[in-house]
Amino acid sequence: MSMLGALPWAVGRSKDRTQAGALNSASGLSLRLEDVSRVFSHHGQTVAALTSITLEVAAGEFVCLLGPSGCGKSTLLNLIAGLDTPTTGAIRVGGQPVEGPGTDRVLLFQEAALFPWLDVQRNVEFGLKQAGLPPQQRAAIARQWIERVNLTGFERHYVHQLSGGMRQRVAIARALAIDPAMLLMDEPFGALDALTRDRLHQELETLWAATRKTVIFVTHNVREAVALGDRVLVFSPRPGRIVGEFHIDLPRPRSLEDPGLVTRTAEVMAVLRAADADERAHGGRGR
C-alpha cells in the first residue's frame, strides 16, 4: 500500500497546516547497536542482563523484541532511551551516539505513566510545553493528536476517568505530539483485554504507516509481535541475547485472521520454546 497516500494527514485542515507541516517533519531515524552488553552489580554480585547485542534497525522500521520476562528487553529499551548506559558497546541513533535521554526517542510503558493531575489535553501538551511552544500552538497540535487517536471529546477528562485502552491512546498521542524519531514501547498493551489490544494494534499500525517513525516494540506476546513487526527478534534470558530473527513480510494492514500470520506465529513460537528449553536445561548458567 502507498504510505505517501496516508502521510499528509493534515490536508484539508488549512487552519493548522503550517503547524501540522512542522509536526510531521521528522520521520524515523535508524538505530545501530554494536556489541552492546549491560552488567548489573548488586551487593558484589554481577548479573549480565544483556550480552553482545548487535542490531541494525532501518529508519521507519517496526521491530518487535520478543522474549520471556527477565531477558533484558526493557534494559535494552532503557539503553536506547538513554536512561541507562551500556557496560560495553555503542548505540547510535541516526548515526549519532546516544548520550542521555532525548526527545527524539520516547518511551511508552505498560502503565501509560500519564499525569493524573492533568486532563487529556494537558497531558498531550506536556512535551510541547517543555519544548517552549506557545499555548495556542500546543493546544492546536494536541487537539490534532487527540483526534488521531480517536479521543476527540475526551480532552477534559482526567486519567482515572479513562479505560486502559484510552490511557494508552493518550500516551501514544503525548509521545507523537513532540514528533520523536523513534517510539520505544515497553509492553504498552500488556495489561489490556484482547479486543482492546487488537484495536490498538490496528490504530498503532495506521499511525506508524502515516508517520514513518521507527518503532522498537517489546512484548512477550508472540502473536502481537508477528502482527505488528516488520521484523521479530527473539530474546533468550540470562543473559539476554538474540537467538532468532524473523522478517515478517505479510501485507499491511494485517488481519489477525490471516493464515500467513498464524503460520509465522507458530514458527516464532517454536524458536521461543527451543530457547526456553535450552535455558531450563542449562539452569540459566549457559554463559
Partner: peptide, 12 residues
C-alpha cells in the same frame, strides 16, 4: 515513572 516519563518528554 512520572519523573521518568517527564524527563523522557523533555522536562528539565
Amino acid at each position: 515513572h512520572y519523573v521518568q516519563a517527564a524527563r523522557n518528554l523533555g522536562a528539565r
